[in-house]
Design a protein around this nucleic acid. Structure first.
Length: 261
DNA sequence: ATGCCTAAGCCCCTTAGA
C-alpha cells in the first residue's frame, strides 16, 4: 500500500491540482494538511468521483486535516490531541487526525509552525510536540503497524535545507524543535525519507517568494515516520516534486511511502 | 533590516503561513 502526505495550502484553491495528483499517483491513503475550510466546505463528492472516501477535521480559514482512502472509508480512531491554541480561549486547532486502514494505523498531522521564535507560538509548538510524543508512544506500545505522516514544520538536519544561514533563526530548525523531533524518533520511529536519502538534499517545500522554486531554495519539513513493523515493510519512499512546478501549485510537494502488503 | 508570494475572509486590506 502507498501512503501519501500533501500539505495542499487550501482545498478550494487547490482542488484541480489535488484531483490531478490523486488520479496520476493513486495513493491508497492520502493525508492532507491545511485544507483551510470548515467541515461543511469539504468537497466530498469530488473525491467520491475518483473512488476515494474521506474523513476530515476542518476549521475556518486555517489549518485542517483530512484522510482519504481508495475504495474504503477510513475508520477514525482519534481527532485532536486535546491541546488549546496559543491565544486565550481559542480552543483546539484542527491539526490531528488518526485512522485505521487495512490494519495500519495512520496518523495525519499538521504541526504548529512556531514562528516567530521565541514567543508564545514557539512555546505552543514545543508543547504540541510533547503531547504528540505521548500519543505516539501509546501507538508504539500497541505494536500494531503504524505510519505518522504530515507537515511537521521541523527541518531535522542541516543537510535538509538549502541554506543553513538563511534559515538559522527560523522556528523550523531551532535546536529545541529538532530535539523534540529526535526524541520522538528515539522512541522507535523511522524517518523513511531520511533513511532512503542519507546524504540529504531532498526538499518538500519551496517558498512562493523570491523565486525559491526556480533557484531550488527548499527544505524538508514533510515527513513519514514508520513503526518498526512498517519499517520492515518499506519498499520505497519519495517526493512528487514535479507537482510543485505546476500552475497554481501548493508551496509543498507530496511525500509518500510504499509498504509491502 | 525588510519584502519577496499566496489563500481566505469579508472583500481591496488584514492575518497567517514557513
Amino acid at each position: 500500500m502507498k501512503i501519501a502526505s500533501f500539505n495542499i495550502n487550501g482545498i478550494k484553491a487547490r482542488l484541480p491540482r489535488l484531483k490531478e495528483w490523486l488520479a496520476e499517483t493513486r495513493p491508497t491513503v492520502a493525508c492532507l494538511q491545511e485544507i483551510k475550510t470548515q467541515d461543511d466546505g469539504f468537497p466530498t463528492s469530488e473525491f467520491e468521483e475518483l473512488g476515494y472516501q474521506a474523513i476530515w477535521h476542518g476549521q475556518k480559514s486555517f489549518n485542517g486535516v483530512a484522510i482519504l482512502v481508495d475504495g474504503a472509508k477510513p475508520v477514525e480512531m482519534r481527532r485532536g490531541l486535546g491541546i488549546d491554541g496559543p491565544k486565550d480561549g481559542e480552543g483546539e486547532q484542527a491539526r490531528y487526525l488518526e485512522a485505521d486502514v487495512n490494519g495500519v494505523r495512520v496518523v495525519n498531522l499538521y504541526l504548529p509552525n512556531g514562528n516567530p521564535h521565541p514567543g508564545p507560538k514557539f512555546d505552543y509548538k514545543l508543547a504540541w510536540m510533547e503531547i504528540l510524543r505521548a500519543r505516539l508512544q501509546d501507538i508504539l506500545a500497541s505494536e500494531q503497524p503504524a505510519v505518522v505522516v504530515g507537515d511537521f514544520n521541523v527541518i531535522p538536519h542541516d543537510r535538509d535545507v538549502w541554506s543553513v544561514k538563511a534559515m538559522a533563526s527560523d522556528a523550523l530548525m531551532q535546536p529545541a524543535s529538532r530535539d523534540a523531533y529526535f526524541r520522538i524518533l528515539g522512541d522507535g520511529w523511522t524517518d523513511a525519507l531520511a533513511t532512503r536519502n542519507p546524504r540529504g538534499g531532498v526538499w518538500t517545500y519551496w517558498d512562493y517568494q523570491a523565486g525559491a522554486w526556480q533557484r531550488d531554495h527548499g527544505f524538508r519539513i514533510d515527513h513519514a515516520l514508520l513503526s518498526p513493523e512498517c519499517a520492515d515493510r518499506l519498499l520505497a519512499a519519495g517526493v512528487d516534486k514535479d507537482h510543485r512546478a505546476r500552475e497554481k501549485a501548493s508551496d509543498h510537494a507530496p511525500v509518500w511511502v510504499e509498504l509491502r502488503d
